[in-house]
Amino acid sequence: MSGKQRRSRWMGVRLLALVLLLYAGLALAGSPGVLPALHKALEILKTLLPILAVVVIISGGINYFLKPKALAKHLGEESGLRGWMIALGAGVLSHGPMYAWYPVIAELRRHGMRDGLVAAFFYARAIKVPLLPMMVAYFGLDFTVLLTLLTLLAAWGQGVIMDILPARQEELP
């Protein structure tokens, strides 16, 4: 386990302890929302487990199949238009909560994925293809088309700005 992973794990343990204390405190205070909150949390966990299994397979696959040279070509400094298309497309098509994708993204960054593409990926996740018919039903076709196009544009714009900002100095996982 790297130093970064160890720090990350301990931060997680501390936060988990804090959350458990919060639940315990609310339960002791007799707050009626605790049991529903626990029930909701368990439901989320149930939904998340298959997604995490997919994340493990993707992360393992990235390490096994993708070599640094290929990754640099597709998502690195010289990836160009192809890099943007991959990041935006992957963002639009990815499912599950954002935090489930952190391990995959951390792995890709470790292999040279540009921060701009990471930012574009995360923002493009606002577009949920399976939910587009529902958005049309609630807000109209013109709203849906406009918001989708502007979201993609904003995702790309954020990526461009992120790439312009000085290179990261922080430690990578």
């Binding site: 386990m1 794990r9 949390a41 368990l42």
Partner: peptide, 25 residues
């Protein structure tokens, strides 16, 4: 590689569980 990836997720489990707990609240 799959095993390594699974361990990475395991290391993150306390954080993931904490986030899920907060989302529930």
């Amino acid at each position: 590689n799959l095993k390594q990836a699974a361990f990475s997720i395991l290391y993150m489990m306390p954080m993931i569980l904490a986030i899920i707990g907060l989302v529930g609240l």
